[in-house]
């Protein structure tokens, strides 16, 4: 609960912060808080991924971008009533929707009575992998994971194509000058 409150505070800081460098560092802190919360929620695999990918890789990529662009947000704080209105309406709809959800941590919620018990009971006899998350990701849903890696591969190709063109033009400009 305290961690969640801290996350909210960090997000307020991100929204109000003008220096992009500060925003990037704060979003790293946000990712680590997220990882801590995930550990409290028993999602240890997800927490590890979030700490390494969210707080590590994302921050490095963002800092790499900041090295190439201006690091100061230009506009003076213009109030955006329409954006605020849209955000508040969405928020109110979501609050209204979640009020009917089961209370936090109850064991007999619908989510725990569907296919999750099947996996928990059969994972060791069927796959011999004690970590259920790993077994579902790589054994039962292996093709989905293959699709996921395809997405990452495509994104990687896209990044390479975009940045290589930029690098080449920079080389040419240097030669001309």
């Amino acid at each position: 609960m305290i961690l969640l409150t801290l996350m909210a505070i960090v997000v307020i800081a991100i929204v109000t912060q003008r220096s992009l460098f500060g925003v990037v560092i704060l979003s790293g802190a946000y990712s680590f808080l997220m990882a801590s919360v995930l550990i409290v929620y028993d999602a240890v695999d997800v927490a590890m991924t979030e700490a390494s990918v969210g707080a590590g890789v994302s921050t490095v990529v963002l800092l790499g971008t900041l090295a190439l662009v201006k690091t100061r947000e230009a506009r003076a704080d213009a109030r955006q009533p329409l954006a605020l209105f849209v955000a508040l309406v969405v928020g109110a709809a979501l609050v209204w929707g979640t009020l009917q959800l089961p209370s936090f941590g109850t064991a007999d919620a619908v989510i725990h009575r569907h296919v999750a018990p099947y996996y928990l009971q059969n994972v060791v006899p069927q796959t011999n992998v004690p970590n259920v998350v790993t077994a579902v990701l790589a054994d039962y849903r292996g093709y989905d994971t293959l699709g996921e890696t395809t997405v990452i591969f495509t994104a990687g190709i896209g990044v390479m194509l975009l940045l290589r063109g930029a690098w080449r033009r920079a080389q040419r400009n240097r030669k001309d000058a």
């Binding site: 409290v40 929620y41 999602a43 240890v44 936090f104 941590g105 109850t106 064991a107 928990l120």
Partner: peptide, 16 residues
């Protein structure tokens, strides 16, 4: 997604 999956008194889903 993760918060509804938590059971109070439960542990991480590694069979032991």
């Amino acid at each position: 997604y993760i918060a509804p999956g938590k059971i109070i008194g439960g542990t991480a889903p590694i069979i032991d």
